[in-house]
Nucleic acid binder design. Structure first.
Length: 390
RNA sequence: GGAGGGGUUCCCGAGCGGCCAAAGGGAGCAGACUGUAAAUCUGCCGGCGAAGCCUACGGAGGUUCGAAUCCUCCCCCCUCCA
């Protein structure tokens, strides 16, 4: 076995391409297909989150078998550990983690928000104090792109400032200026042609700023446009209003990615507003915390009411977990803190999300998205209300 | 038979005159989780209620304004010696 050299070389690889297949007649939902060097992504798509080069508790083969076509990695986390040079030398992130399918890497912009106490911002970039060992780790728009090029992801994200809610108009405007200048620098720093680069639309909850952000980014020119800075504590209605006031102005011929969102209801509602891509830790994290999504609403599997419930978690679900195990067994595993609880719960939740997106795509294709959406939402809320009265 | 150490709210376990319905764990119950510092976090956890009252620290008495805490006897448990 020879030394691994340029395995993530671009030679012979198809570059990024988005094809818009269909627009829904009742809503702004879109059906599309993204082509990347590592395969295709049907949209609207949900991308399971694999921050540290793994979708927690699942093997890549399992993730794939559930129907996921693309997963996320995180630039900040992989930069700190194990380091992008190491990953590049081992053949790139795809090979390193044994996921030969599309990967999108988030930039670290979310860590500017979530690790707010551990970083300092400047025009030049961000200085993180490593959450692992406290050491100082600098990231600039240029180094952020260089790291993602080393990782070899199919879709790279611009370094942005993810602003918390609430933020004043002035603060959001100041922040947007920085994010826009960083986007320009990211675009200029990009050296590969096989990897796509998405811009991130910020602007808080202010439609005028969001519009300005879209225009600025479109002028620079990106392979896709992401809506960032949402689901950071704002009321749900504000999130919807912001998406609704932003998505339609993004370029038609590129994917629209709503970052960090959300619940199943959020996904279906935002598809209706024209969103093509989603990611969220909710299915994986909540699975680990015993909160399962079903076609009849949420199930807190630790609840005493499932103690001797021999029914499957979701009788409309075809996943491995629902085909083989009772609620009573899943509850037992969870309360006993068994590793298998996490695995089975994650299998179900990821399957639920990915299947939901497949159903959404089928509905759009069959001109039935609107009715599918209404039925899905009614079913969920009805059962959830029943559940809370117990 | 002798010497010593213990019995505390579901469990373990702190408290050793008032600030004690009693620390801290665990178990149990419920809630949260949205570009992952998360197999994490939060709340409740004797009864009824607004203050407050009642029942509680092995049992029965006693001392004291006041006892889970001090004294007496009794019942159990553990260790060591015979």
């Amino acid at each position: 076995m020879g030394k691994v050299g340029t395995l993530n070389s671009e030679i012979g690889k198809k570059s990024f391409h988005f094809e818009l297949l269909k627009r829904d007649s009742d809503t702004r939902a879109r059906l599309g297909i993204i082509t990347t060097p590592h395969g295709r992504i049907e949209t609207p798509a949900f991308m399971p989150v694999g921050t540290q080069g793994t979708v927690k508790s699942l093997t890549p083969e399992r993730v794939r078998s559930l129907g996921a076509q693309v997963i996320l990695g995180n630039t900040y986390h992989l930069y700190l550990r194990p380091g992008h040079d190491l990953i590049r030398n081992l053949g790139g992130l795809h090979r390193f983690m044994n996921w030969p399918h599309p990967i999108l890497t988030d930039s670290g912009g979310f860590q500017i928000y979530s690790l707010g106490a551990l970083r300092k911002l400047s025009e030049e970039g961000v200085a993180f104090q490593s959450h692992i060992d406290g050491s100082s780790r600098i990231m600039t728009p240029e180094s952020c792109v260089a790291i993602q090029e080393a990782l070899g992801s199919d879709i790279m994200m611009c370094l942005d400032e993810c602003l918390p809610y609430p933020a004043s108009f002035g603060e959001a405007e100041r922040s947007l200026g920085l994010t826009t200048r960083w986007a320009q620098r990211c675009r200029q720093a990009k050296t590969t042609t096989s990897q796509a680069l998405f811009g991130i639309v910020q602007g808080g909850i202010y439609p005028s700023l969001r519009r300005r952000a879209v225009d600025s980014l479109a002028e620079i020119g990106f392979d896709g446009y992401a809506l960032g800075g949402l689901s950071v504590g704002e009321p749900k209605e504000l999130m919807y209003e912001t998406v609704d006031a932003t998505a339609p102005y993004c370029p038609e011929d590129t994917p629209r990615y709503l970052m960090g969102v959300g619940t199943p209801e959020d996904l279906i509602n935002c598809v209706a507003m024209g969103i093509d891509m989603f990611d969220c830790v909710m299915p994986t994290r909540n699975a680990r915390n015993g909160m399962l999504f079903t076609n009849k609403g949420k199930v807190a599997i630790k609840n005493a009411r499932y103690r001797d419930d021999k029914a499957p978690l979701d009788d409309q679900c075809g996943c491995y977990t629902c085909q083989h195990y009772s609620r009573a067994y899943l509850r037992h595993l969870y309360l006993a803190r068994e590793i298998l609880a996490i695995v089975l719960n994650t299998i179900h939740n990821v399957s639920f999300y990915v299947t939901l997106m497949a159903n959404i795509r089928n509905a759009i294709e069959g001109n039935a998205f609107h009715s599918f959406r209404v039925a899905f939402l009614e079913n969920m809320t009805q059962h959830n209300e029943e559940g809370t009265t117990c």
